[in-house]
């Protein structure tokens, strides 16, 4: 038998460490969001993409600063922001050396490879709530082909709601989780809102799988990672009875 209080304490400690690590990333995204809001407010006439060129540097610094957690980031503009390009997405991916590289997406709706970002969860969820949120995990095929979680920050502008994002890999998050938890027993699972396992301390319940119903029924102690009403990290830490 595990002492329920000790387990709860470990889960709460882990929730605190995980959320404070990730909130540091959110805080810097919000600074960039502020700069986007200011630049948008001072626009006169038709918006041009060139007026947001400063973001390249901002995101390069952002990605480098948080390279222990994130592997990329960028901005998806509200559809129709720029007359020259109705859909516009600028995303960068960390490289082993040097500045992050620009990730090209096919934004032509007639193309077979069309990347309709306006229908992706990481765009729709924060667009409709207007609140920062972590979306995923989902597998980013055509991107880096691994499971990621996107930290999303919406910016309300006269042109509409743009979404800023930072891509967190599960590999990086796993390290934060395990080092914070420091428990091999009982089984503890960090669970995403889609029922997918973000991390766990059990080899049987591996990252990326859906938590089975039979495992869920063994849930003993549950702790929400964020305590807000509209949580940025809609994740739960669950310990399972042995």
């Amino acid at each position: 038998m595990h002492n329920v209080d000790t387990v709860r304490e470990a889960l709460e400690r882990t929730a605190g460490i995980v959320s404070s690590s990730i909130n540091a990333v959110f805080a810097d995204l919000e600074k960039i969001a502020q700069a986007v809001a200011e630049a948008s407010a001072s626009l006169s006439g038709e918006p041009q993409r060139s007026e947001f060129l400063f973001l390249k540097r901002e995101f390069a610094d952002f990605i480098r600063k948080h390279s222990d957690l994130i592997v990329g980031g960028g901005i998806a503009y509200a559809p129709g922001t720029f007359p020259e390009a109705p859909f516009w997405l600028e995303w960068w991916r960390a490289q082993r050396t040097g500045d992050p590289r620009f990730v090209t997406h096919d934004l032509n709706p007639d193309s077979l490879n069309y990347y309709d970002y306006t229908s992706r969860e990481w765009f729709t969820v924060p667009s409709s709530s207007g609140q920062p949120v972590a979306v995923g995990p989902y597998v980013d095929f055509g991107g880096i082909n691994v499971s990621i979680i996107t930290l999303c920050v919406p910016v309300s502008t006269p042109q509409g709601m743009h979404i800023l994002g930072g891509d967190l890999t599960l590999a990086n998050l796993e390290g934060v989780f395990l080092r914070a938890l420091q428990l091999r027993e009982p089984v503890v699972v960090l669970l995403g809102p889609n029922g997918r396992v973000i991390a766990s301390n059990s080899a049987r319940i591996a990252t990326g799988i859906l938590l089975q119903e039979t495992d869920l029924q063994r849930a003993e102690t549950e702790v929400n990672v964020s305590s807000d009403d509209l949580p940025r990290l809609p994740w739960k830490l669950i310990s399972l009875a042995s």
Partner: peptide, 20 residues
Amino acid sequence: GIEFLIEQHLRLTMEHGENA
């Protein structure tokens, strides 16, 4: 075999945190 390797990976990652 893979479950065994994941076990070792989890253990090593936690131990690394303790010593860090």
